[in-house]
Amino acid sequence: MDKNKKNGNFYTVIYAAVMVIIVAVVLAFVSEFLKPRRDANIRQETRQTIMRSVHLEGRSYEKYITDTAAGPENLPLFICTLDDGTRKYIIPLEGKGLWGSINGYLALNDDFRTVYGAVFDHEAETPGLGAEISTPSFSDPFRGKSLYRGETFVSLSVVKPGKSAGNPNAVDGISGGTLTSRGVENMIRESLEPYIPFLRHYE
C-alpha cells in the first residue's frame, strides 16, 4: 500500500474505528455465547462449596440443604439435615484478603458453639501462598474448634503455623500468606457477629 495514504489522518481514524468495532462485536458475541456455561459453572461451584462445608462433597444439594433466612435482619442461613437427622447450620462468610475479596462457609453444630466444617475461597489471592486457604489442609483443622471461651464469643484466631496446638479457639495460618490468613480471621469474626445474639436461641 502507498506509504503516504497509509499514514494519513483520515485513514488512521477509520482504521482505529473499524478495528475497535470488530473487536467489540467479537468479544460481545463470545461473552454472550459462553455465558450460560460460565454461570452454570459458578452456580454449581457455590452449591458444591456449601456441600463441602458439611463434608458431603459430590452429594445432591437439593436433598440435604434448605435455604432460609434468620434473625431480625433476615441474614442468610443454610440448614443441612444429615442422614441421621442431626442439623448443621451453615453461615456464609465474606471478607477481604490481600488482593481481593475472600469468602467461605462455616458449618456449626446444633450447639451453635463448635465448628462442624469450613471451606474458604478467594478471588485473587497469590497462587501457592494466600490461595492455599481454599485447600483442605487449611480448612480441615477448623472442625471441632470452638467459637466461645467460657460463655464469651471470641471467634477463631488464625495464628502462625504450628502455634495453634492445644488451643480450641485457634487454627494454623499459612506461611507466606500472613495477610490472607489475617483476612480470614477478620472475615470469620465480622461475618459471625451479627448472628451471635440470636443464633443460640434459634430453633
Binding site: 473487536v23 468479544l27 461473552s31 456455561r37 460460565r38 459458578i42 461451584e45 478471588e123 497462587p127 490461595a131
Partner: peptide, 22 residues
C-alpha cells in the same frame, strides 16, 4: 482481545484452573 478470549474460554471450560490463575 486474545487474552480476554483465553480468559473466557478458561472460565467456561476449565473453571477450577481459571480460578487458580486468577
Amino acid at each position: 482481545t486474545l487474552v480476554i478470549l483465553v480468559d473466557q474460554v478458561l472460565k467456561a471450560f476449565a473453571y477450577p484452573i481459571s480460578k487458580q490463575l486468577s
